[in-house]
């Protein structure tokens, strides 16, 4: 038992030092600085999103997190994806969420702090999952990626509407049908019913 744990710890240490060696922190480059900045924004934004007690602030932190994610995509030279992330996620989804917040919650409303057992439960579940994942990640050796040139927009467009092995025209159409269905569904669900329920007094007031 002890030997197992010891060997495990040794393997972990070795892997971690290998990873940091490959990162070569002694030789900072722009991309490393940018990555660290983005990572910091993402982590901080995520934590604040789920811990903030004002819902509108939570939405704002989520917005920053999504922006930073778009930055990651840019860092990886996927400009198109970054643009989509910005327009759809940060521009579309978040606006919808903010609208719904404004429709359903009072602006000065603060959540009650969650009960301790709940926080503990969340910490246990998320923490154990994170630990496991990080262990696995650290112990995994990925093949060294070849430095490929960044894909240009023409390639992306051809693949998106291509019909060959690497073409995505079918999923593309399916997604469009799905979006249409969701649009109709959302309208149907959220539509006000004809009877005058809106005259009911608001509980929160």
């Amino acid at each position: 038992m002890m030997e197992t744990i010891q060997s495990f710890m040794t393997a972990m240490m070795n892997s971690v030092s290998e990873i940091f060696a490959s990162a070569d922190l002694t030789r900072p480059t722009w991309s490393k600085w940018i990555f660290m900045a983005l990572a910091g924004v993402i982590l901080l934004g995520s934590v604040l999103t789920v811990t903030s007690r004002r819902i509108l602030r939570a939405a704002t932190f989520l917005f920053f997190t999504l922006l930073a994610t778009a930055g990651l995509y840019l860092l990886l030279e996927y400009e198109f994806l970054a643009a989509v992330q910005l327009t759809v996620y940060a521009g579309g989804i978040l606006v919808v969420i903010v609208f719904s917040i404004l429709l359903t919650s009072h602006i000065s409303y603060r959540f009650d702090p969650p009960p301790v057992w709940r926080v503990l439960g969340g910490l246990v579940a998320a923490g154990s999952g994170l630990l496991l994942t990080i262990c696995v990640l650290v112990l995994t050796v990925f093949p060294k990626g070849v430095a490929a040139p960044a894909p240009d927009m023409q390639q992306v467009g051809n693949a998106l509407l291509g019909q060959d092995v690497h073409g995505y025209v079918l999923p593309f159409e399916v997604i469009s049908i799905l979006l249409l269905a969701c649009m109709i569904g959302a309208i149907v669900v959220a539509r006000k019913s004809r009877e005058p329920e809106a005259s009911q007094p608001d509980k929160t007031e």
């Binding site: 709940r118 439960g121 969340g122 246990v124 579940a125 998320a126 154990s128 999952g129 496991l132």
Partner: peptide
């Protein structure tokens, strides 16, 4: 939330 808790823990 309870379900998610159990689910995540179980998956882990």
């Amino acid at each position: 939330q309870g379900y998610v808790f159990v689910f995540v823990l179980g998956a882990v």
